[in-house]
Amino acid sequence: MMDVLDIFASAGLWAAVLRIATPLIFGTLGALISERAGVLNLGIEGIMTFGAMIGWMTVYHGGDLWLGLAVAALSGAVFGLLHAALTVPLGLSQHVTGLGITLFASSLSYFIFRLAVPVSGSPPTIVPFQVIKIPVLSDLPFLGEAVFSQTAPTYLAIALALVIAYALARTPLGLAVRIVGENPHAAEAQGINPIRVRIGAVVFGSALMAMGGAFLTLAAFNSFFPTMVQGRGWVCIALVVFASWRPERALGGALLFALFDAYQLRLQHVVGKAIPYQLFLMIPYIMSILALLVMARRARVPQALMQPFRRGER
């Protein structure tokens, strides 16, 4: 019994929490921004896969790690533009279009990867982002190892969450995004172009999703393999609901979720073979469903979410 609780006392656990949370923070923020403007983007799973692939590929072919992250973001923006073009001006079903984007982006990732990297025994690797120890702070007992010894994209993700929370709540641009997501007709009356705001939000959100995917191949692991995103995109969609569409809560939700994930990984070692490991691996998905269940009725859904905007039509 003691072992099961001892896990919480290890700084390694808390360092892992931040690492596991990073792709979820990027992905959840991306999905959240898009949904706050009224567009559900189920392309997330595929966009994360493509970001993971193209980021890795850039570095594998001699690019800088930051260039890899930037290329991933750009690719995400392109898929986001496709999703936005189909769902915003054309008003196609956001559900089915998003799934189509996921199928397209992931199959294209596998195609490009297979074309560039022939089948081999072990997948080729790159040198990933290294841990940056923040001076002074990383010398703190426990906290130093747990919080202040992370890779650069993790710090970036946390900073982004705070910036986006501020921007959404306090800037004119954030206000525009929120109005368009609540009532696009009112937004138009205010001189805001709902079509443009929605396209912008989807494109920016998709870029963040792809960066979350790229974190997997550029920092968490050092190679790309198919199905590596493992439903993280869907988890992010659930986390947006859990966070009640608020960025600061999304950060908290991602961290809480990552805590469970990091804990179950360590618990597997303590418990050993007494319980099948698959039960532990189910925990993240079950947790996401529970999160939806708890928040479904309480969450503040953007009122115009999934409602296409047509000028002059109600």
């Binding site: 189920l42 659930a238 609901v241 189910m282 269940l293």
Partner: peptide
């Protein structure tokens, strides 16, 4: 409970 079935059915696949 009003939980959107898209995400729950997707998660149950895993």
């Amino acid at each position: 409970f009003g939980v959107d079935e898209v995400v729950t059915t997707l998660l149950l696949n895993f």
